[in-house]
């Protein structure tokens, strides 16, 4: 471990957790969000901690080290295509070389493109401290824009991504241009069927509210239904979202965002024969 006049460079995760428990530090993963403000800070430099840069598959569960940058994950064969499709649209090569998936999560922006995919795929996060660890569903991690339940003594140490059923996906990012675009609306939909019946529906919306939005109670309307039954339910299904989605006005209008969300949701159903 290197203790700097202002900051720490741990060599192991155990050291990092100890420093985190004893000092007021800002965890530094890739720095690509933190350095925009570039305020003098006591950083806990995690960017060279190999313990946080592993990708390991355990059956249907993929464990993604939060310290992996986008370039590492884009080059990794075990990372599912839907997550890669979202990551390749993030910023530029230089940013993808430094920016990490864990940083994208902990920065807690509702526009975080990788977080959207993790919402739809029911990912879980492991939060560790010297006192122990807890595993939380990703949607319980965020309490608002830039706000999470991560305690001052904790670090995000594992992203648990269930791989089953991610091959059939619908993803669309609406940005101002191809590179360097911050999402105006991002949408991902997953729909799986088993024996002719819908076994999973997940529709997640990014960049329209304080957190990514997903409405499990609406998704449940289609579970267990055949595609024909789901088609009959489509107007009622869309009406629920029409009522529930209230986008925040940003650089583009709330009305525009709402319309795009509804268009994408309908197109997602269409693409699945509903």
């Amino acid at each position: 471990m290197v203790t700097l006049r202002n900051g720490y460079i741990p060599e192991t995760l155990a050291e990092a957790l100890k420093i985190r428990s004893e000092n007021q530090v800002v965890p530094y993963a890739g720095g690509t969000d933190l350095m925009i403000k570039a305020q003098p800070s006591s950083y806990l430099f995690l960017n060279k901690l190999s313990a946080l840069q592993k990708v390991e598959q355990d059956g249907d569960m993929l464990h993604i080290g939060p310290g992996c940058n986008y370039t590492m994950l884009l080059n990794h064969p075990a990372v599912p295509k839907v997550l890669k499709e979202a990551m390749i649209r993030i910023a530029s090569p230089a940013t993808r070389n430094r920016g990490t998936i864990g940083g994208n999560i902990c920065n807690a922006s509702p526009k975080a493109d990788s977080v959207l995919i993790l919402y739809a795929s029911d990912a879980e996060l492991k939060l560790s401290s010297i006192a122990g660890e807890r595993i939380v569903p990703i949607e319980e991690f965020f309490t608002g824009r830039g706000k999470t339940i991560l305690r001052e003594d904790e670090l995000l140490t594992d992203i648990r991504l269930p791989l089953k059923g991610l091959d059939d996906y619908y993803y669309y990012k609406v940005g101002a241009r191809r590179a360097m675009a911050i999402s105006r609306v991002a949408f991902v939909g997953l729909l799986n069927t088993e024996n002719g019946k819908i076994s999973r529906v997940a529709a997640a919306f990014g960049a329209i509210s304080d957190t990514v939005l997903r409405f499990r109670e609406f998704e449940a309307m289609l579970l267990g239904k055949t595609l024909a039954e789901a088609t009959a339910l489509k107007p009622a299904f869309l009406a629920k979202y029409q009522e529930a989605i209230v986008p925040i006005r940003g650089r583009v209008s709330a009305e525009y965002r709402k319309q795009v969300c509804m268009n994408l949701l309908a197109d997602f159903l269409n693409s699945n024969g509903i």
Binding site: G7, Y28, T32, A38, Y43, F45, K48, T95, R98
Partner: peptide
């Protein structure tokens, strides 16, 4: 690897 040096803290390039 290409990097934007404006978004890199000095401490992160130790070594």
């Amino acid at each position: 690897q290409l990097a934007n040096s404006c978004m890199v803290a000095l401490g992160s390039v130790s070594g």
